[in-house]
Amino acid sequence: MTLRGRTAVRWTVRTLSEICLTAGALIVLFVVYLLFWTGVRADSAMDGEIGRLRQQWSTGGAAGPGGTPSPDGKRAPGRGPAQDARPRPYTSGASFAVMYIPRLGADWAKPVLEGTTTGVLQRGLGHYDRTAHLGETGNFSVAGHRRTYGDPFKDFPRLRPGDAVVLTDGATWFTYRIDNRPYTTLPGDIGVIDPVPRKSGFNGPGRYLTLTTCEPEWGHSHRLIAWAHLDSTQPVAQGRPSALTG
Rank of each mutant, 00 (worst) to 15 (best):
147 R>I: 11
169 D>H: 12
218 W>Y: 06
177 R>C: 05
229 H>P: 00
172 T>L: 09
116 T>W: 11
229 H>N: 01
235 P>Q: 12
154 K>D: 10
146 R>H: 06
152 P>W: 01
217 E>K: 11
130 R>F: 10
139 N>W: 01
160 R>I: 06
163 D>S: 10
108 W>G: 04
136 E>P: 00
183 Y>T: 02
171 A>R: 08
210 T>A: 03
206 G>A: 12
173 W>Q: 06
165 V>S: 02
121 L>P: 00
121 L>W: 09
144 G>Q: 04
128 Y>V: 02
162 G>Y: 10
195 P>R: 08
180 N>C: 08
229 H>G: 01
198 R>G: 14
171 A>M: 05
136 E>F: 02
143 A>H: 05
228 A>Q: 07
139 N>Q: 05
115 G>D: 05
202 F>I: 02
131 T>G: 07
106 A>V: 09
193 I>W: 02
149 Y>N: 07
113 L>K: 02
220 H>V: 06
227 W>R: 00
235 P>H: 13
192 V>L: 06
228 A>R: 09
221 S>T: 14
226 A>H: 14
111 P>Q: 08
128 Y>E: 07
156 F>C: 02
236 V>L: 06
128 Y>L: 04
149 Y>W: 15
178 I>S: 03
222 H>I: 04
123 R>P: 01
136 E>K: 05
133 H>W: 10
111 P>R: 06
179 D>C: 14
162 G>H: 09
188 G>K: 11
157 P>T: 07
166 V>S: 01
177 R>E: 13
151 D>H: 11
106 A>E: 12
199 K>Y: 13
197 P>C: 08
154 K>T: 06
107 D>S: 13
202 F>S: 02
234 Q>V: 08
140 F>S: 04
134 L>R: 15
217 E>G: 07
163 D>G: 07
200 S>Y: 05
203 N>L: 12
132 A>Y: 15
146 R>K: 07
233 T>V: 13
223 R>Q: 13
220 H>Q: 10
147 R>Q: 12
185 T>N: 03
191 G>V: 06
131 T>Q: 07
141 S>P: 12
231 D>W: 14
142 V>A: 01
217 E>F: 12
177 R>A: 05
107 D>T: 12
152 P>Q: 01
215 E>A: 15
176 Y>V: 01
220 H>R: 10
127 H>Y: 09
205 P>K: 07
178 I>L: 09
168 T>I: 08
132 A>C: 11
170 G>F: 09
117 T>K: 00
162 G>A: 07
183 Y>H: 06
142 V>E: 01
138 G>Q: 09
196 V>L: 05
218 W>T: 00
139 N>I: 00
172 T>I: 12
121 L>Y: 10
130 R>Y: 14
166 V>D: 01
224 L>Q: 10
158 R>W: 08
150 G>E: 04
153 F>D: 00
145 H>V: 07
146 R>Y: 05
128 Y>S: 03
145 H>C: 06
192 V>I: 08
133 H>P: 02
107 D>N: 11
170 G>Q: 14
